[in-house]
């Protein structure tokens, strides 16, 4: 093993070495989800597009793939929303503004906000923390509102306590024509909104399948049901985009953990055009 001088280290591109970033702000999103606003210490923007993910590193704990939740239109800082599920994410939750983390990426594909979505009506369908990566695209659309037609957002949470970003819905809908509908699987005493699974919202909206592009993100079980509904409404597979979760360990198409048949999700995903993966047995 040789330890090279720092200067030389910087010139060699080590795909496994994280870049330092510092936490600017944290905010509780739900009981188990926390938002982190981050800034690369180099001062550069992350350079991501909506839907891409980063590997967040915490020395001693390892790395976790986390999707970026903010739009690149909002400046050089970026936001991650982390669900506390294990030791690493638990430790992340204990961090405070000023603390550092390591960042690799951005990695993977993105929602086609500058191509397929542009000039069309957009339909975002999100279950639970599926809203986390999609929020980046929503912000992008909101910030370039004139480039898009009507925006539909359908959001389903397990319970009212699991709703994400509820103080932002109004801002999302303000600048242009927008429809926002939400539901919870299980209501509580104070909930006056809809109760039922996410798919029950689809019949509530009127959209033109010929001029609408759908972006779908949620837990693994959700996709099939949503896709069936949209197809029944006449939407083509070419116009549906999904973001899929897998074990993206290295992020650079080497380690093999995220493979879905022949596809390395960290490279060819996490965002896929549905028609590209309908024949893929391990996809949905």
């Amino acid at each position: 093993m040789s330890n090279m001088p720092r200067a030389e280290q910087e010139t060699v591109r080590d795909i496994y070495r994280p870049r330092p970033a510092s936490i600017v702000r944290t905010a509780d999103v739900t009981r188990i989800e926390k938002l982190f606003e981050l800034e690369l210490e180099s001062g550069e923007a992350l350079g991501h597009m909506p839907g891409q993910f980063v590997e967040v590193s915490l020395a001693g704990f390892g790395e976790a793939p986390i999707s970026v939740s903010s739009s690149p239109t909002r400046g050089p800082r970026f936001e991650l929303v982390v669900r506390r599920v294990g030791a690493l994410t638990g430790a992340l939750h204990r961090l405070k503004p000023g603390d550092r983390v390591g960042i690799r990426g951005p990695f993977g594909t993105w929602f086609p906000v500058d191509s397929d979505l542009r000039g069309r009506d957009v339909l975002f369908i999100c279950g639970g923390i599926g809203l986390v990566p999609v929020r980046s695209a929503i912000q992008y659309v909101v910030d370039k509102r004139s480039h898009y037609g009507h925006m539909f957002i359908l959001f389903g949470a397990r319970t009212p306590a699991d709703r994400l970003f509820s103080d932002e819905y109004e801002q999302w809908c303000a600048p242009g024509e927008a429809t926002f509908l939400e539901t919870v699987d299980k209501r509580d005493a104070r909930w006056t909104g809809a109760e039922g699974v996410l798919t029950t919202l689809i019949p509530c909206i009127r959209f033109d399948p010929g001029r609408t592009v759908a972006v779908i993100c949620g837990p693994p079980v959700m996709y099939r049901f949503v896709i069936v509904e949209l197809k029944q409404r006449g939407m083509a597979e070419d116009n549906m985009f999904v973001s899929l979760e897998r074990r993206m360990k290295c992020g650079v198409g080497k380690c093999g953990h995220c493979q879905m048949n022949h596809i390395y999700v960290c490279q060819k995903g996490p965002v896929f055009r549905l028609s590209e993966i309908t024949d893929l047995e391990e996809a949905l």
């Binding site: 330890n3 280290q9 080590d14 496994y16 070495r17 994280p18 020395a59 550092r100």
Partner: peptide, 19 residues
């Protein structure tokens, strides 16, 4: 195979084997 050494404050250094 060691890839990186990590030091306090999220500082990472690449470890190379090129002998």
């Amino acid at each position: 195979e060691n890839l990186l050494a990590y030091l306090p404050q999220e500082h990472y250094e690449s470890l190379w084997a090129d002998e």
